[in-house]
Write a protein that binds this DNA or RNA. Sequence first.
DNA 1: AATATATATGCCAAAATAAGCATATAGTAA
DNA 2: TTACTATATGCTTATTTTGGCATATATATT
Lengths: 96, 96
Amino acid sequence: MKNNYYEEKVKILKALSNPVRLEIIDFLSNGEKCVCEIVENLQYEQPHISKSLIKLKEAGLIKDRKEGLNVYYSLKICCLKDFFSCLNKILENSSK
Amino acid sequence: MKNNYYEEKVKILKALSNPVRLEIIDFLSNGEKCVCEIVENLQYEQPHISKSLIKLKEAGLIKDRKEGLNVYYSLKICCLKDFFSCLNKILENSSK
DNA sequence: AATATATATGCCAAAATAAGCATATAGTAA
DNA sequence: TTACTATATGCTTATTTTGGCATATATATT
């Protein structure tokens, strides 16, 4: 259905529409990290980071892997670089 | 500032995070259209379309041009195609 | 000037999101 | 079992977003 077609995209875009979640994605672009590393690095409350990760995962943007007590998250998408370079182009254009 | 860096991207992503606005962008990918054409084609209330267009414009995604009583809107960004093809890849991956 | 048309704005209630804090769960170690 | 650690979940309040309806504005026409 046409509506579903847009709704699914909206879900991904909404997951990305948050500064903390964008920061997490940036951090994960350096490779797989456990939640504790993300919390330590980004300095937000642990539950906040956890919820952010879950939202990104539900949108299909990242994946997780358990190892003992730790959960490791990593990017699931390879095209995100181009995606964000488009965003940057938009920003450059806007400031003109 | 790092915060501003993400906030600006979030503004663009939020503008895109809505099915009606995505539909408008799709429609505009066929070329410049006036508000009346968009309203007629997408079947939403005119004030709703107007607000959607303004939000997209404020995010730097589209531009407008007045001609008599009409206002014509068109895409301002050429990389949106790649942007959405990335979204589609994410969707394909998610459904696996 | 009066009228008509295209578009934008304002206001409102409902729904969604955000973020803090407390607490639960799952795995590990003693 | 008990205690500990890493992560997830639940609850709550504040804020933002949504979409409908009424109305304002700007331009064109008579």
